[in-house]
Simulated scan of single mutants.
Amino acid sequence: MRLIAVASWSFGALSLVATQNATSTGTSTATSSAATTATFATAGVTATTTAGLPVISNIPGLNASVGLLPDQVAAHQADCFALQTLYQPLGGSGWFNNTGWTSTDMMSCCTWFGVGCDRLGAVLRLVLPNNNLVGSIPPTISAVTRLLKLDLSNNTITGTLPNGLGALGNLQSLVMRNNQFTGIIPTSLGKLRGLQWLDLSYNQFTGNIPPELTNLAKLERLFLSHNQLYGSVPDSFSTLQNLQWFHINFNQLAGAFPSFNAPPRLGYCLVGRNVFQSCPYNWNDPNSLAFQCGLSCSAPSTSASAYAVAAGSTHVPLGGSYAKYISALIVVVAIAVVRL
């Protein structure tokens, strides 16, 4: 007996109608002889059925052999819709490269300029530096939930950094360098527990450095320089033991410079052009953050708390940690002595 089954599914703007012809013997259906045809609102996309569910393939930007199940298609479309909401608020028509971004096909965003996906269509990267983005980032950016890397550096983005960025729990790299952001650094960034790279330098951020950034235990690079940040460096930063780059220079940070030891892997530290009032008691300890950041302090007067930061100090020679610079200098001197 020949059975004809018609099923339909809808994924946002994508509709699928599948007609399955199968041969039935008694009460069982011979699925091995089943044939499926499908029609889509999206041209070129095809489907077969597995266990009664459509498997969608030939998705733009993905390997033709990869098939997605309905929940994967829905997640992929949600990413595409969320990305498209960024286009107009960030002046997409004026971008240097906006290839693909004007498409109405919500199955094609893996082919859009600056967008990177995994093999199953999850949007993992949005990288649009130096692309003439102008305007403010809408809160819908938080809907691209599987992002690993977000780089919108070297543009003219204004307004505040959306609190919703804290919802991007998979984010490993957030680079917003050299824009025109204002307002405070959102405390919600402290929720990005997997973040390894945070660059907010060369903007107009004000307020304190959020102590919530202490939660970023995997952070390796922290760039907050060339803003208008004030207050003190949180003592809780002593827990950021994976830091390799620490740039907070050219702000209005004040108070006592922290007394905790430098992270063991710190190699590049810039803290100059701030208004720190005093040095820590251990400023000349080679393990201290003050020493490794090249903080130059005057001689003490009557107590350890009376150490003062020398004018024009607090930069690291040759871009590396002060301790490493001194070690290299000692080696050079030793070699010279031996040769004599």
Rank of each mutant, 00 (worst) to 15 (best):
Q241D: 03
Y230E: 05
F246N: 08
I248F: 12
G231V: 04
F237T: 10
F246Y: 14
D235R: 10
F246A: 00
N251Y: 10
L216E: 08
R221L: 12
F246L: 15
F237H: 05
D235C: 01
A217V: 13
R221N: 12
L216I: 10
E220G: 13
F237N: 06
L240F: 08
L213Y: 07
A217E: 08
E212N: 13
S238L: 11
F223V: 01
E220A: 13
D235H: 07
L224R: 03
H247F: 13
L222I: 09
S225T: 04
F237E: 02
K218W: 04
D235P: 10
L243W: 02
P234C: 05
S232C: 03
Q244F: 04
L216D: 03
Q241P: 01
S225A: 12
Q244A: 07
S236F: 02
E212F: 02
W245Q: 10
Q228E: 05
T214P: 11
L229M: 07
L222E: 05
S236Q: 11
F250G: 00
I248R: 10
S236D: 09
V233E: 00
T214Q: 14
L219P: 11
N249I: 09
L243D: 07
N242A: 13
L243V: 09
T239W: 00
T239S: 14
F223P: 00
Q241E: 07
N242H: 13
F246I: 07
T214W: 07
D235Y: 00
Q241Y: 06
L219I: 02
Q252R: 12
A217H: 15
S236E: 11
L213T: 02
S225V: 01
F223I: 00
Q228D: 07
